[in-house]
Amino acid sequence: MKKIDTLKAGQEFFLSGTIYTARDQAHKRLVEAVKSGKRLPIELEGAIIYYCGPTQTPKGKIIGSCGPTTSSRMDTFAPLLLAKGLKAMIGKGARSKEVKEAIRKYKGVYFVTYAGCGALLSKYVKKVEVAAYRDLGPEAILKLEVKDFPLIVAIDAKGGNIYG
């Protein structure tokens, strides 16, 4: 994770380790939990969140198609999660001024990955388990073990931003 702090916008990065999927409804719940002082179902300190809701898992496969969803829909939730220890986000597309500012303030990073390439990205997922909110179906929080997951640094901790 230390390596993440030195990343610069535009750089390629291959991630190996644990990431959590979370999208709209999971973010809504996480933020509600933080605001009401409830215990979170995942440890946010140092966590990496992947904006993704995979397809069902075909028989004999580890995961189905699992590409990124549009990050900007999570913009209203991200600053609070960054304040609570979230280290990195993976998604697609641009972020708001507030998110950029929070990334700089809390020394986080925002990655993008190959958008619309969910089949290809499934190759880099080695293990999957449901971590929380199973009732959300495709929007449940999954714990993924990934190996060499291809990323591009989109916004770095120093304010560098590939989207300008």
Partner: peptide, 15 residues
Amino acid sequence: NAAYARKQKLAICQD
């Protein structure tokens, strides 16, 4: 991705 989806019978996109 398109080639992999076709070969593996995976959805081209998770959406």
